[in-house]
Design a protein around this nucleic acid. Sequence first.
DNA 1: ATAGGATAGTCGTTTAAACGAATATAACAG
DNA 2: CTGTTATATTCGTTTAAACGACTATCCTAT
Lengths: 163, 163
Amino acid sequence: MPGLLVHELRMSVPFASREMEAVLNLMRTADYLRREVAELLSPHGLSPSSYNVLRILRGAGTAGLPCSEVSQRLVTHDPDITRLADRLMASGWVVRDRQPGDRRVVVLRITPEGSDLVVRLDVDLQDLHRRQLSHLGQTNLDMFIRLLEQARQSEPVTTPENP
Amino acid sequence: MPGLLVHELRMSVPFASREMEAVLNLMRTADYLRREVAELLSPHGLSPSSYNVLRILRGAGTAGLPCSEVSQRLVTHDPDITRLADRLMASGWVVRDRQPGDRRVVVLRITPEGSDLVVRLDVDLQDLHRRQLSHLGQTNLDMFIRLLEQARQSEPVTTPENP
DNA sequence: ATAGGATAGTCGTTTAAACGAATATAACAG
DNA sequence: CTGTTATATTCGTTTAAACGACTATCCTAT
C-alpha cells in the first residue's frame, strides 16, 4: 500500500527510500502543527520561539537565566537570543540585567506581566495540543514520543573538522 | 521514566501533558533533521524549499507544472512561489512560460542543468536520510511513518468561519 | 456582449532568520 | 603583570518568510 504522503503530494513515483519518506513526513507534520501553534500565538504578538523563551524564563523563576542558557534550552535552535529578547523587552514581558559576578553574561528575567501571559496561553496551548494529537491514543502517543527521541540519535556527520 | 526531551531542555518541571511532549519532540526532531538537510543543500545555493520545487518539477518532466500545482505539492507550505521561482530562474535551473490556453497560469519547467543538479543531490540526500534514520530499523520506520501520517489527521479548528 | 465574481500570479512592505564580524570581559600561562 | 585565548553577547548585512493589496485573465449568468 502506498503511503498517505505519496497521495498528498500527488507523487507520480514513490519515495526512493523508506527513510526519505519518514523525513518528509516529519517535515510536513511539523510544519502543519507549528502553523497552528503560530496562529494561536500571533494575536498576542508572539512567535513559537519567543513564547518558548517566556516559558523557559517562567521555569527559571525570579533568578532568571543567562542568554546562553536560554539558547540551549530552546526547542528549536535560534542563534540570536539578543534580538528575540529585544522584542520581549519592548513588550514588557522580560527584563535584562548584567550578572554581578561575570559582567559578560546577561541575565534574562520574566516580568509579572510576562508570567501572566504565559499562564493564560498555556491553557490554550494545552487544548490545542490535545486536539492535535489525542486521537492517537495513549499507547500510540507513547510510541510516537519514543520514536521521535530515537530519531534524534543519529550518527553525527564525519568531516575533516569532526573526525 | 522521564523522557529524553525533559533532560535535553533541562526542564525543572515535566511536561503538562503527553500531547505537548509529543508536539515539542516533533518540532525539535524536525528542526534537527531539517538543519542537516539545509547544510547539505546550501553550498549549491538551494534551500529545502527550492530543492523541493526542483524535485517536483523533475517529476513533472518536460510538460512542466503551473505555479499553483507546485505550491500544493510542496512538503511545507510556501505562499510565494513567485519569488522562489525567481531565484531558481536566476540560477538557470527553471524556466517560466505562460500557458497558451489560459494566460493566467504560469508554467514552470526544469532545465537540463536543473535536472542534472537534482539527480546529483538526490544521491547525497539518500545517504543523509539513511544516516539520519536507518538506525531505527525497518519495523520502527514503518511505525514512525504511520504515526506521522496519523498525526496530521487531527480535527480541524472550529471557528465562526469554519462551522 | 458584459458586469460580477472567481482564479492565478505578482509585488510592496514588514518582520524575522542566517551568518559572520565585532566588542567586552574573563581566565590563564609565563 | 601582560599578552593570548576563550567566552558571552551584540550588531551589520544579506536573505528569506508572512501578510495583504493589486493586476490580469477567465468564467458565467443574464
